[in-house]
Design a protein around this nucleic acid. Structure first.
Lengths: 345, 345
DNA sequence: CTGAAAGCGCTAACAA
DNA sequence: TTGTTAGCGCTTTCAG
């Protein structure tokens, strides 16, 4: 059995409460006893028991992190380890621990979250995704349990604290990059339309086209769960169009890699025959061929900001809801190329 | 404040201890009261407080998971979300929660682990890596704290419970695949030589060459932290050799992607000019170009087995140390090609 | 089969 | 500035 506060107290010749005060770095305590107690703690190898502390404090000093259901392959996205690092950085600094939560199905996840909340295992929750009609979010809202979203809530945007990029603007800027290079037929490929991030990035794409007076055909937009089977077909159809695109905006680096490969299968070379831009700037996008021009969304920052907000919120229930926009920047690499002027006839 | 055991007891007209027994599904309790208590629990929306329980039980019902230091980019490897899923699956099933632990530097991580252990936040720890002279492992050993390794320990293999693939055999088999296709000059590219997994996979590679009576030159072996700068140079040198390789065994799918791209930069095409095989079978290896022939190490299984072993160990301190070998299989895709017979002179 | 009571290790009034 | 004393919410002897 580990050494307890009582034993330290006895050894230092003080009351347990005094030791407790030393631990909490209470102001009104004489330097002398403080020193003496600290010495005893060190000598005896004392470490406060988190459970006991938390029970007495009615807190847990831990943050729950919910990764999306692992049903889809998207979970293998390097985005996740990276946000986790961001969260971990500030959690660690502020002495919180991270409770991770995943599951195969949505029900399983909801159940896991409920357990975390009801059994008082966590002070607050970070949702690493945002989608329409998310039962987990609804549950949290209903319980009035502190949480923040990495991404943008599907509704009640002003009531829910979230950390996001300005994905609309990012979508617009990256599309403008293509437009600036002379592209006029630009397609969009994204994941599920339930994910807010997809919606926003596509919105930016649309705005850019609109402002430039370029056409945005329905046939230019593809939503595919995650490439493979269905995706291949869709991409193929893109090039059967009367005016096939010369540029594509893709909602995620990982998808880009798949698309680039499909394209080459169909005999299209990136960037010579077709230009590609995407989002996230995961490590992979640098080492792929060609290296991807992509929006660096500062994943780590998303995570650390989310953790910061959540902790503030946990500490102060009255903390107003916030919206933190993490800046992005564009990494220009070699997946795009200025379009060759088309010779008529 | 949430409803407590006392309130339930009062409502059901029994003592708190009786409620506690119902929660624990104690055998000696009359069906009548059991039913009555359950009803009250349900009606009042009672959920036991984990902290209080754990304090009384001196346990935490949670597993610590240590991801390697995020100093290197390797952390973005999709391997991690995937093991995490595996661990999560059994943790969830057995009603454990997962405490995640990372850090920028090795010292930071050691500190974080110490805190988890000393403050009694976790019952046991899973190490998601294995390297020589790992201070975290040494600490755990010293404290006699339950832990298991995903991978193979650098030393004291029989004393430390671990879950691993037979990486030596996997290395051998995948190399044999290349040999079987007529390749005679085969190189190896791996990460840090401190990582046991690299060592083992390379050992398998060596054994295969040896058995086949093929040369394995020092110049055929490259160890590079993670591609980029140094790696490019190294790969370049490979082809400056008098007998450049026609096949490469690469220790990780992610590295493969980088290597394939470098290769093509140098004008070598995979698999036409050079064949490539690697390890892990992360999702990416399917969608890359060409799709990679790779060893499927069953990442999910590694995670779930590790969690299972750890929980056994936590429940029973006397549990003997084990070595679980998760089977692998090879996914044959199109990054390899039988070698063209060389015409003399 | 059930209840009373002590205690897990710590914190936080309230006194002194 | 420090000690005393009640808990935090649950489990677990020990009686009955």
């Amino acid at each position: 059995m580990a050494v307890t506060i009582k034993e330290v107290a006895k050894a230092a010749g003080v009351a347990p409460s005094t030791v407790s005060r030393v631990i909490a770095d209470h102001p009104r305590i004489s330097p002398a006893t403080k020193k003496r107690v600290k010495k005893a703690m060190k000598e005896m190898g004392y470490h406060p028991n988190a459970n006991a502390r938390n029970l007495a404090n009615r807190s847990t000093q831990s943050l729950g992190v919910v990764m999306p259901s692992s049903a889809d392959k998207a979970l293998q996205n390097p985005f996740f380890p990276e946000v986790l690092r961001g969260i971990s950085a500030v959690a660690h600094e502020l002495d919180y621990s991270m409770l991770l939560c995943t599951g195969e199905t949505d029900e399983e996840m909801l159940e896991a979250v409920k357990r975390m909340v009801f059994s008082n295992r966590t002070d607050g929750i970070i949702l690493l995704y945002s989608q329409v009609d998310d039962p987990i979010m609804e549950f949290l809202l209903e319980q009035d349990f502190p949480f923040v979203i990495v991404g943008k809530p599907a509704a009640r945007v002003d009531e829910i604290t979230h950390v996001d990029n300005d994905n609309i603007r990012a979508g617009k800027e990256i599309t403008n990059h293509l437009i600036g290079m002379g592209h006029e037929c630009i397609a969009f490929i994204g994941g599920s339309e339930d994910r807010i991030v997809t919606i926003d990035r596509m919105r930016g794409y649309e705005l850019a086209l609109e402002e430039a007076g370029l056409p945005y055909l329905d046939e230019y937009r593809i939503h595919t769960e995650f490439l493979k089977s269905g995706g291949r077909q869709a991409v193929h159809e893109l090039f059967a169009l009367p005016k096939p695109p010369t540029g594509i905006v893709i909602a995620d680096d990982l998808m880009s890699i798949g698309v680039v490969n499909m394209l080459e299968e169909f005999g299209k070379r990136v960037p010579d025959d077709i230009s590609i831009v995407s989002f996230n700037n995961v490590y992979l996008s640098e080492i792929t061929r060609p290296p991807l021009t992509t929006v660096d969304i500062h994943i780590h920052g998303l995570g650390s900001q989310a953790a910061k907000c959540l902790i503030e919120k946990v500490k102060n229930k009255e903390e107003p809801s916030k919206r933190i926009i993490v800046p992005f920047d564009i990494k220009y690499r070699s997946s795009t190329k200025a379009i060759k002027p088309q010779l008529e006839g």
